[in-house]
Amino acid sequence: MRMSKIVRFSADVLFGAILIFGFYIILHGHLTPGGGFQGGAVVATGAALVIVAYSYEEVLHMIKKAGLMLQESAGLVMFAGVALIALGLGTTFFFNYLANSGLLFGMSVPFGPNPGELNTGGVLPLMNIAVGIEVWGGLAIVILYMLSGISKAEEA
């Protein structure tokens, strides 16, 4: 079962815009309100729009379940791995070892109100990206599994 042509066309058009907005929220998580969880939920909303608009067989051609599962696991492993590297460097767990270091995301920030710079934050942007990938995969695969359940129930 699929929805009407109007719904499918709107889903196709809106999917790209929602995706770009979600990536913006994830990547600017250390500058503007939002972060990994919020941005990942926005991206998963775009995926849910496509999943609701199309039938189960068409969705399976667009999105792979194993890919989403791998994405979710990779996000959690990346999040824990970034935190574990700090232990290898001889500091505490979750220590922000990249902040003020001059390396990747390593610029300093002056105190008080300032316009902000994308290349700051230390490990925080990496963790935002990791959590964003995880939440995206996790919430999308929940909706996909529910769609697969009802498509089986329709046939019976």
């Binding site: 500058l31 309100p33 972060g35 390593g106 700051t120 230390g122 490990v123 925080l124």
Partner: peptide, 14 residues
């Protein structure tokens, strides 16, 4: 300490 403008993200992730 965290070189971030968004204090909420600093608290949540650092």
């Amino acid at each position: 300490q965290a070189a971030t403008n968004n204090i909420v993200t600093t608290v949540v992730f650092d």
